[in-house]
Simulated assay, not measured.
Amino acid sequence: MSIPKYDELRISALNILLDGRSMKLKDFVEPLAKEFKLTEDEINEMYPSGNGHIFYDRISWALSYLNMAGLLDKPGRGIYRISQKGIDMLKSKTPLAINEFVDHEVSKRDKSKKTNRNPEIALTDISDRSTPQEKLYTSFNNIRNSIYDEILTTILNKTPSAFEKLVVLLLQRMGYGGEVKNSGLVTKKSNDGGIDGIIKEDILGFGRINIQAKRYRLDIAVGREEIQRFVGALAVAQSNKGVFITTSYFSKGAIEYVENLYGSTTVVLIDGKDLAAYIYDYGLGMQVEQTIEIKKMDTDFWDSMADQ
């Protein structure tokens, strides 16, 4: 039997979790391989590039789509558990109806334009009418967005103090603090004055970037009042530079308040989607899994040769 596509694995994965247990991704390999009667060679078959097992990767995508549709929960990084919605649909809907629902929900996420910048990450559908290059770029962006989701889920399972350390490390990785030794500092809770972290921009510490870090659930907005309190904390700290970082998103009022700040105070807002993108782009806690080279004809080289 050939290796099943990721959409063919979704119903079976749901059924495995129907007893309410939580499972890691790798724990799905054996029961799904047994159900689909796969050989050892099929289970271990690699992509032509040699990077990654095909069956494992398809299980990963099946679980990701089920999670995005709300049929699975992720109580921890790489851990899956069936949701109440998933239980209800398994009991009341046909496999075809469930798959159509999942595809619809994923498509809806992509089409919805959220004016509040909620960092819910969408995957883009790959049309059969797309060119091979368009499919490649879309696949790349889908993989990237899937990792963004995993980054935010992981952060939400860490402590607030761990998040504060993370954002200080991120700003340092982005180049703030330069060559200054020990340029990043996480403030003590007992005396932080509304400031969670500090980046020193020069050796003597005359220039400072003050940080506020809020580890909020993705659906809880940071409001105008919280930004105003942060600006007040900057004034007390006699600082004119601040970065407010959250795992969620900023309300319209918060964004407008920052845009209309007058005087010498500058506040930069980084929401969950931007945070995940910066962590990904600057390689903080990330590993390069695969490198693909796409080549094209060098027209200058070929045009320099005589035509027949």
Rank of each mutant, 00 (worst) to 15 (best):
R215N: 12
D202K: 10
K181D: 02
A122L: 06
S49F: 04
M46W: 01
M23I: 08
E289C: 11
E8W: 04
A221K: 13
Q308V: 15
I199N: 10
L18I: 04
K296W: 04
V231A: 10
R109Q: 09
Y65W: 14
G86L: 10
I3T: 13
E8T: 08
D192H: 03
W302R: 14
N141Q: 11
T94N: 02
N182W: 03
E225I: 02
V102D: 09
D202M: 02
L71E: 11
S64D: 12
G50Y: 08
Q133W: 10
L32E: 01
D27E: 14
D128N: 07
P48I: 06
H104L: 13
V243Y: 03
N191C: 11
L32T: 06
G177F: 02
V268F: 06
R21S: 06
L234P: 00
Q212C: 05
F101Q: 12
D300R: 11
R21Q: 13
G223R: 04
K165Q: 13
R215T: 07
S49K: 10
E120W: 05
G193W: 06
V268Y: 04
K135T: 00
N141K: 15
E289K: 14
Q228C: 00
E100F: 11
F206E: 03
L18G: 03
K85L: 15
D307A: 15
K181R: 11
K200M: 15
S239D: 07
